[in-house]
Amino acid sequence: MANGTARGAALELHDLGKSYGGLKVLEGVNLNVVPGEFVTFLGPSGSGKTTTLNLIAGFAAPDAGGRMQLDGRSLAEVPAHKRDIGVVFQNYALFPHMTVRENIAFPLKQRRPRPDAATIARRVDQALSLVHLEAYGDRRPDQLSGGQQQRVALARAVVFEPKLLLLDEPLGALDKRLRESLQLELRRIHRELGVTIIFVTHDQDEALTLSDRIVVFREGAVEQVGTPAELYNNPGSEFVATFLGDSNTFAGTLKDGQFTLDQADARFASLPGTPDGPIKIMVRPENVTVCDDAGEAANAVRVTVDDVVFSGATLRVEGIDAKGSQLIARTRTDGPLPKIGDAMWFCWDASTTRIVATGGAA
């Protein structure tokens, strides 16, 4: 296992939907996942990401017309307990009366045909090594930290060498430092095993850190799919722009390529090639510079500094514009620091402006 004997499966979802008591909670989900890909389902609570995961795992059945295939085989033909899928939950779900080794061995002992004792012992040893818990095999779950319990749950999910691994907010109950540490471990394990991973989270930073691609869910449907860089730098909607990281959004009108706001002390570069009408544009805080004088900046908005937050290498500056909207700049800390109440300009280059909505946006 540690030498990469497990290999990922291709997963295809076609027009998945799910209703409960007449209430539609998921509709029209389509997705192709290539073998060995790390795909994250991201969205707010109730957006449909965990429902989709449950359908893949076999914990629920899709509505009529929805299809799922694993390596070309319909999952409708395979009972949940026979799908070549490992699952890790947020609450670990370890057996408290079993040792770590017994917990990890459990899925192997349930398989038919059941591996022999020597094979089970070897695979358990490999799984313990994979999660760096070789010295903890004889302990029980209540003798482990939260992070160690999560590693045991992960080892139990991969010990039978599944082709697909489903992770349902597995790091959500951990503190920030431990969560970041286990994110690195997940990346390492993914590289070593080559298994296909579907990871559910509502944590945007986690999704950006771990994923090959991100599927953004909204109100039971897929809003956008792309690499972390694609979604962050070129969001396809205002929802994606605001959900995936901080953003500054401006609603105005476009005429002959010129964006205008009903607001004093603001100017914007032209946006050629976009139809006239209501429009929303966005710029990320790290692309905004805090200036005493707007000078020749292509885009500039006058603000009153409302808060200044020092975070080591960067400074988060919050400003209020003439319309009372809050704007954010994230800048370096090696220059003069603005103070609350200062009148400043937020400036940015035209190349960093993104259009996130047109037609009725204003």
Rank of each mutant, 00 (worst) to 15 (best):
A2P: 00
T5C: 14
E12W: 04
D15L: 06
L16K: 04
G17A: 11
K18Q: 11
V29P: 03
L31H: 02
P44K: 10
K49N: 04
T52G: 04
N54V: 03
A60S: 15
A61S: 15
P62F: 07
L75F: 01
V78F: 05
R83Y: 03
A93W: 02
A93T: 09
L94I: 03
H97I: 00
T99P: 03
T99I: 03
E102D: 14
L108R: 03
Q110W: 15
R111Q: 15
P113K: 09
T119I: 04
D125E: 15
L128K: 07
S129R: 12
H132K: 11
L133T: 03
Y136H: 05
G137I: 09
R140H: 15
Q143W: 09
Q149T: 09
L154Q: 11
A155H: 12
A155W: 05
A155R: 06
R156Q: 14
L171Y: 14
L174T: 14
Q183A: 12
E192T: 10
L193E: 05
L193S: 05
V200R: 00
T201E: 01
H202W: 11
S211P: 09
I214G: 06
V216E: 08
E223R: 06
G226E: 02
T227N: 01
P228Q: 05
A229C: 06
N234L: 01
G236N: 01
G236P: 00
S237E: 07
V240Y: 08
T242F: 00
F243V: 13
F243W: 10
G245E: 07
D246W: 07
D246Q: 14
F250A: 11
L254V: 08
K255Y: 00
F259N: 07
L261C: 13
P278S: 15
M282C: 15
M282W: 07
V283K: 07
V283Q: 08
E286G: 02
V288A: 09
V288R: 11
V290R: 12
D293Q: 13
A294I: 05
G295T: 07
G295W: 02
A298D: 15
N299W: 13
V301P: 13
R302N: 06
V303H: 09
V308T: 05
S311K: 15
T314F: 13
V317H: 08
D321C: 12
A322I: 02
K323Y: 00
G324V: 01
G324Q: 12
I328K: 13
R330N: 10
P336V: 11
L337G: 02
L337N: 03
L337D: 00
K339F: 04
K339Y: 02
G341D: 08
F346T: 10
F346R: 06
C347A: 13
V356E: 06
A357N: 05
T358C: 13
G359S: 10
G359L: 05
G360V: 10
